[in-house]
Design a protein around this nucleic acid. Structure first.
Lengths: 231, 231
DNA sequence: CGGGACATTGCTGTCAGACAACCAGACCGG
DNA sequence: CCGGTCTGGTTGTCTGACAGCAATGTCCCG
């Protein structure tokens, strides 16, 4: 990643685009501190105003958070969706998830390549072999994202990924329920088997069952789960 | 994703929030020119820097567009989604649309209020009575959005609205096909009747048929039509 | 009288400098 | 060892200035 001097377009736009790219490519990782505004200004050969405007865009887009006296930190590696900007009930998110992921499983079954299948099988295996809840959540996310990717429709991947991010805390509480891991493992296997068989209807049904059990469990714990976490 | 209390202390954030609200509530309509930065600065009793930073956020979010020498103009009345940032094939958009709108119709049938129903019926009637293609597209969008709203799940409304915006040009070409208006009118009526009857399955089926005919028309060129006998 | 070049005006884009608020860590005194 | 203070660094905000762009009015010349 070379930082090239500003030329034709508005300088602030160029800076913004480059900063976004630096963050999305992982040059600055999540929770990293960006260089100070003064340093960035020098790097880009522009004034601090331009840097501030670019950073303010990133702030608005949810990519970074700035704190007076501390610095600017990367908050997310990719542009956050509007889903993150509002607060929605778990039940509402669950409905959307069902609407997206059931057809996603169906299409994945119809279109998956051998490479998709291999990746999915590996993830299922790792899911069953991983004891730590936090790790399992990651694998679970990768699995559902992998299914969405197997649809060959990038929009499914995009939207399922967004949902995943919003549902992160729900997934965490869920994963701690006794015996949930084994149950989820079995459900995952059924989904993948249907995808492997190329049976769209079966894949859809298996995914639906999976989400049913997720919904049932998250309703039970919903009442006790409301804790206020301020920062 | 931790839930942050909305505790806005920085002046620029306050200004940004207020400007967003002014735009979303329609106080400034699309294509209106906002007051100049100097005027806004005076109105909000802050310096021009703060205004610029707020405006730059709006720019990044796609709400406004600034032109040197002309001013800042409202580009969109609501926050634009990431769907708009990429280019996707009509077939891909159609799949997502089916995934979202079929469950949307089902839920709408199960939850619609009397007010929803009244609004939807009015829209169907107006759709049938409107000859101009461009007007019909608007009504069509309102109709599908109205169905999404009747689900009582704001996320359906959000996502269906996003899709609508992306599909605008497709809708335009579609609406010019001979006889399409009558066909669409009939399909709409069938959907609304099922919603009125509270029959979720029938509403889903009617929506699916509607989207089938849309898909068939929009890809009748080279590709062979796929028969969808799922569900 | 008409039309085109020019001056004016208002706006955004950018720069430079300054100061306050704030934070973290170093330093120092008890 | 502990706690308060100092200090340097960072963001937040303000002020003033100037360049470049766009639209409009104005004036001179044909």
């Amino acid at each position: 990643m070379t930082i090239r001097p500003v030329q034709q377009r508005r300088a602030s736009e160029v800076v913004r685009a480059q900063l976004i790219e630096l963050i999305e490519t992982g040059h600055y990782a999540v929770n990293d501190r960006l260089p100070s505004e003064a340093e960035l200004a020098q790097s880009f050969s522009v004034s601090r105003s331009v840097i501030r405007e670019a950073l303010y865009s990133l702030n608005a887009l949810g990519l970074t958070r700035s704190h007076a006296g501390k610095g600017t930190f990367v908050a997310s590696a990719h542009l956050s969706s509007r889903l993150l900007m509002g607060r929605y009930l778990p039940a509402q998110l669950g409905e959307i998830r069902r609407a997206l992921e059931v057809p996603s499983a169906r299409l994945a079954a119809e279109r998956r390549t051998a490479a998709d299948l291999k990746k999915l099988r590996l993830l299922v295996q790792r899911f069953g072999a991983t004891p730590e809840a936090s790790k399992r959540i990651e694998i679970d996310a990768d699995l559902h994202l992998g299914i969405a990717a197997a649809t060959r429709n990038p929009l499914f991947e995009l939207l399922v990924g967004d949902l995943r991010q919003v549902l992160q805390d729900q997934a965490l509480t869920l994963s701690k329920i006794e015996g949930r891991a084994q149950q989820a493992d079995a459900e995952h296997q059924r989904i993948i088997e249907a995808i492997e068989a190329g049976d769209g209807a079966a894949a859809a049904a298996a995914m639906e069952a999976h989400l049913d059990s997720v919904a049932a469990l998250s309703e039970d714990g919903a009442s006790a789960r409301k804790s206020r976490r301020a920062r």
